[in-house]
């Protein structure tokens, strides 16, 4: 379980470019994502699609360690647009077979 997670992580790192591009295209519902509000994310959508994991990791680092808090961009604010984690995050993550453990601890507000 533990090592499988590690192996998956390494594979994803190696194949990140192609998998992400294919994954998000293939899994995107025809009529757009359900439960989405607003016109745009805090970064351009295409960029977020490819880089949200690095972006979140970098923000996590500066928030925890430097105390940098940008109110409108905190993790708790994601839900103002991405109203459903199941429909938005989990769906794609399941498709590409990654299991980020952010929300094992963090609470995705409803």
């Amino acid at each position: 379980m533990l090592w499988s997670r590690l192996v998956v992580m390494i594979l994803v790192l190696l194949l990140s470019g192609s998998i992400q591009a294919q994954g998000s295209d293939a899994v995107r519902p025809a009529g757009g994502w359900p439960g989405l509000k607003g016109d745009k994310c805090i970064q351009p959508t295409d960029w977020m699609r490819k880089n949200h994991m690095e972006f979140l990791k970098q923000r996590r680092e500066v928030t925890v360690r430097e105390g940098v808090r940008i109110r409108d961009e905190s993790l708790l604010q994601c839900q103002t647009c991405h109203t459903s984690r199941q429909a938005f995050c989990d769906r794609c993550h399941q498709y590409v077979g990654v299991h980020p453990d952010c929300f094992d601890c963090h609470i995705y507000p409803k």
């Binding site: 430097e66 105390g67 940098v68 808090r69 940008i70 109110r71 961009e73």
Partner: peptide, 26 residues
């Protein structure tokens, strides 16, 4: 300083910055 900068980029045109600072740092 950070709040004004962040606010300028982030908030839709016409939306005013609210009272609490948007960005703080230890």
């Amino acid at each position: 300083g950070g709040a004004v900068a962040a606010g300028a980029i982030l908030l839709a045109p016409g939306v005013r910055l609210i009272a609490a600072p948007n960005k703080t740092e230890a």
